[in-house]
Design a protein around this nucleic acid. Sequence first.
DNA 1: TCTATAAATTGATATTTGTCAATATATCGC
DNA 2: GCGATATATTGACAAATATCAATTTATAGA
Lengths: 241, 241
Amino acid sequence: MEPRRIEEACLACADRCCCKCFSDGEISIFDSLSKEELDLLVKEKRHVHFKAGETIIKQNTSASHVVCIKRGLTKIIAEGEGEKKLILRLAATHSILTGGGIFMGEVRHFTAQAVTEVDCCFIDSEEIYELVSKNNRFAFELLKLNNQQNVQMLNNLVGITQKYMPGRVADLLLYLKNEIFLCNPFNTRLSRQELADMTGMTMESLIRILKEFKSSEIITVDGSNIHILDEEALMLISKKG
Amino acid sequence: MEPRRIEEACLACADRCCCKCFSDGEISIFDSLSKEELDLLVKEKRHVHFKAGETIIKQNTSASHVVCIKRGLTKIIAEGEGEKKLILRLAATHSILTGGGIFMGEVRHFTAQAVTEVDCCFIDSEEIYELVSKNNRFAFELLKLNNQQNVQMLNNLVGITQKYMPGRVADLLLYLKNEIFLCNPFNTRLSRQELADMTGMTMESLIRILKEFKSSEIITVDGSNIHILDEEALMLISKKG
DNA sequence: TCTATAAATTGATATTTGTCAATATATCGC
DNA sequence: GCGATATATTGACAAATATCAATTTATAGA
């Protein structure tokens, strides 16, 4: 019952070739590339390994590369004034970090940090630019990806703005189960502080809501293992705000 | 000292041709189009006029068109559960409403509503799709536009999540002056409720913060006319959160 | 101009959420 | 296994924000 995306996937990529990762069954924006284009990408990319906690890309540095997460869990953080941070989303295996300004020396608008060990590829954004110019289907897929992320963030924004804490925590738990770990007793690998940073509340408040959910028998919690017992209830709490 | 973008611009477009609007000095994603492509767009587009208060596009309806705002002020709203709404941004003259799912029958993720009288063009998204396929520079510009909106929303999200009310109202006022009306005593045309909906707070709270700013002599307020007297102070309040 | 209606403002109060400090629990290196 | 350190939990309290009701002000129509 371990998380599928993180544990199983992409074992073939433990070595330095992530060619497979670009087209091994999951839908990917790279599906739109021809063999030649893909080969070019594979040849030029750089493979990098990160230990848990390391910073993969840093907000406000220049955005010269697109990063593909081949294996592992990454948190995407918006850093605010003075230590404040908001975790925008998690990127699991096969996610692509583009966003911010991948084009033309623009600046990153978020930080990405490894939660577990992470294997990823750095692709020079010049090459992405090339591909956008040459391959319209690729441009189209990139637009779609961008839109998806936009919409996810919008929903997040609306939730955080309009819901009380229980609703936000319910959303968080549903997100973790259904969009990141894809299995039910799941191990978040995230600290309470990190969970709190995903909901825009304090750690203490998050812990209290989790406790409420426990005593209502909606979830069980053992360290960073969370088991959702009553998803219906969570959806209701999410809906009611 | 009236708002430039809204009052002056695009008078030539009062008739049904918004060809000019696509390339009359302001930077536009349509600059990347050839004469032929632009002509096609102009020929196929539909011009529509909206009275203040009318809904231009509605959340959850299918996203079959891209809308160009030729003249007027539009509010972009994310509708939440039960009457709750969040105004994501304002779209002034020459804004383009794409976002959400312009591609392939996807669904809109926001509502757009006219604040003043609004003249706009509806362009079938099939045509945009065509252009993306044919013209790589256009695809590139669209990606950039998408990114910009993404970043703006991200900053908004971080602000609303991490700042106290005075910081958020300061951000709102700076946004209105510097990004929408582009002049100093400006007339918001927005009700107090709408201003509140832009900051994710209640109308009463917004009014109280405005009152504080007035008594600190940072602004003067007369109805929906707002004059920023001390922009430095606002920036400081924004920064401190 | 006057009236009816909506919008804005204010005050009192309740609720939500955050802060701070104390304690408990887990984790890591040895 | 043991101590040192980080992380998690709890409680008491303070601060921020929302809610509700009352009042004032603006606005549109007759």
